[in-house]
Design a binder for these strands. Structure first.
Length: 315
DNA sequence: GGCCCTCTTTAGGGCCTT
């Protein structure tokens, strides 16, 4: 299975899903029972959800005890949040690619994992001192409700609004959830996208050093562990494999530079989570195509939360 | 903080994330 064909398929679908975002109110309304099921399954299990043993069994395709709970509310969620302007949509449409193999064969691609590209905005760089204030994710499978985003009340002052434009007044509102309140909603979203017996592959730029540790610490503050079938891929070390036409390595592999390298238009404010997610989706497509990376190879590069030093001991 | 590179490895600077 070539990643290029899958990515082309992804972005064919992505074209149709931009602006099609889950309503957090809907998810909030339906997440309570799901969350209770999650907690219940944890109680019935004699080990945490994110143990290595459990994850290994998941990689082989076995089901986890909670994997079917998403079917309790398996109906589609409504869309209510407009993310992009029409002019911006037109720009992105110009980048769309077709899954040629799928178009000709008529056979649906067998996905080895649910691939979720995500990004966070935070109050700073310290995973211990700072908090997540925005979370956005896009399922590369595309389709209805393939994206999800929300602001998060960090319960502390935001002093870096000059970076992302997210101010205290935007976060200190009754309709903005704290991270602990978001967890059941996020789990509901992920389960609604996850395929039976297959892992979830989260993709982020510099995720290994930044996004994933932040998530781990937020889960830890809620006294929860991430599901064991959540795998992560960092696009930063992958991008470092790129070379220029003269064979030299790139001087910068920041998301901004990669976007400019691939002529990807900026469709909103940089340093807002969903904007960066959209950029990374296109960068991932171009990156894997250029490096001829397959999905299995991408999975081989994945890591688990428990693999990170930050999860093994407090520093 | 983790990773990479080099004027390196008994180290230090820069990148990348907000």
């Amino acid at each position: 299975m070539s990643l290029s064909s899958i990515c082309c398929g992804n972005f064919h679908l992505l074209r149709n899903s931009i602006g099609d975002t889950c309503s957090i109110r809907w998810l909030k309304y339906h997440s309570r029972l799901i969350y209770e099921t999650f907690l219940s399954s944890r109680r019935h299990q004699s080990r945490p959800l994110s143990t290595t043993v459990l994850a290994r069994s998941t990689r082989k395709g076995s089901k986890q005890s909670f994997s079917n709970s998403r079917h309790l509310h398996g109906k589609s969620v409504e869309s209510s949040i407009e993310v992009f302007k029409q002019s911006e949509l037109e720009q992105l449409k110009s980048l769309h690619c077709y899954n040629v193999e799928e178009e000709f064969s008529g056979v649906k691609t067998e996905w080895p994992a649910t691939i979720l590209v995500f990004d966070i905005e935070t109050t700073g760089f310290s995973r211990r001192e700072d908090r997540i204030i925005e979370f956005a994710v896009r399922d590369l499978m595309g389709g209805k409700n393939s994206t999800f985003q929300t602001l998060i009340n960090p319960e502390k002052e935001v002093r870096n609004a000059y970076v992302h434009g997210i101010s205290n007044s935007m976060l200190c509102r009754p309709d903005v959830p704290r991270f602990g309140e978001l967890v059941p909603i996020l789990l509901q979203y992920v389960w609604s996208r996850q395929m039976d017996g297959k892992p979830v592959l989260w993709v982020a730029h510099n995720g290994r050093s930044f996004d994933v540790p932040f998530l781990i610490f937020e889960f830890r503050r809620c006294k929860l562990e991430m599901p064991g079938d959540w795998l992560f891929v960092d696009t930063l070390p992958i991008a470092r494999q790129l070379v220029d036409s003269d064979g030299s390595k790139l001087s910068s592999v920041s998301l901004k530079n990669l976007r400019e390298r691939y002529n990807i238009p900026l469709t909103g404010s940089a340093h807002r989570a969903m904007q960066d997610v959209t950029t990374l989706c296109y960068v991932l497509q171009k990156l894997t195509f250029e490096l001829k990376l397959t999905v299995p190879q991408l999975l081989e590069k994945s890591f688990q939360a428990s693999d990170l030093p930050a999860t093994r001991a407090e520093k």
